[in-house]
Amino acid sequence: MKQNYNNHRKFYPPHHFIYLPLLILLEIFGVYNIWNDSGNQLIWILFSIVIFLLFYLAFMTRQHYALGLQNRMVILEFKQRYFEVFNQSSDEVAEKLRFDQIAALRFAYDDEFKELLYKALHENISGNEIKRSIKNWRADHLRI
Rank of each mutant, 00 (worst) to 15 (best):
L69V: 12
I144P: 12
I49Y: 00
R9T: 15
S126L: 01
I144E: 15
K2E: 07
L26R: 10
I130M: 02
L76A: 15
P13L: 03
V85W: 03
N124E: 14
A66C: 07
I45R: 10
F47T: 00
E27T: 06
H64A: 08
R98E: 15
L105S: 05
H64V: 15
L116E: 05
S38T: 10
M1F: 08
D110S: 15
R9A: 11
K119Y: 13
V50R: 00
N128R: 15
R106Q: 09
V50Q: 01
L67G: 14
H15E: 13
Y109D: 08
K10F: 09
A94K: 10
H16W: 01
F99P: 03
I18S: 12
I45K: 12
D37I: 10
L20T: 14
L57S: 11
I18R: 12
H15R: 13
L121A: 01
E115K: 13
Y12F: 08
V50Y: 01
A58L: 07
K10S: 13
R9S: 14
F78N: 06
F47C: 03
S38V: 08
Q80A: 11
K96H: 12
S133I: 02
L46F: 03
Y109H: 12
Y19L: 10
W137I: 06
I144K: 14
Y19G: 02
K131W: 12
A108Y: 01
F59P: 10
V85K: 00
S48P: 02
W44G: 02
R106T: 08
L117S: 02
I24K: 03
D91H: 05
E129Q: 08
E27K: 15
R98Q: 15
A120T: 03
A104C: 06
Q88K: 08
I49K: 00
F29G: 05
E115N: 08
F52P: 04
Y5Q: 14
L117C: 04
E77V: 10
N136W: 04
E129P: 02
F47V: 00
R106N: 09
E129C: 00
L54W: 05
S89F: 06
G30R: 07
F55A: 12
L69C: 12
I144W: 14
K131Y: 12
H16P: 06
F52C: 09
R98Y: 14
D140R: 14
A104Y: 02
L67C: 13
K10G: 08
I24V: 15
N136D: 15
R132T: 09
F113S: 02
E27F: 14
I51K: 00
L97N: 03
F83P: 01
E77P: 03
L26V: 11
E84G: 06
L46I: 07
N71V: 13
Q88Y: 09
I18T: 07
G39F: 09
N71H: 10
E129R: 08
E115C: 05
N87A: 15
Y82P: 03
I125F: 05
R106E: 06
P21N: 01
M60R: 11
E84K: 12
E77K: 07
Q101Y: 00
S90Q: 04
M1C: 07
I49R: 00
G68E: 13
F107D: 10
Y56K: 09
F78W: 05
E92F: 11
Y109T: 03
F113I: 00
Y82I: 00
F78A: 04
S133L: 07
L20K: 07
F113G: 01
L22K: 08
H16G: 07
L69R: 13
H141E: 09
K79A: 14
P14H: 02
F17H: 05
S48W: 00
E92H: 06
N40W: 04
N6P: 04
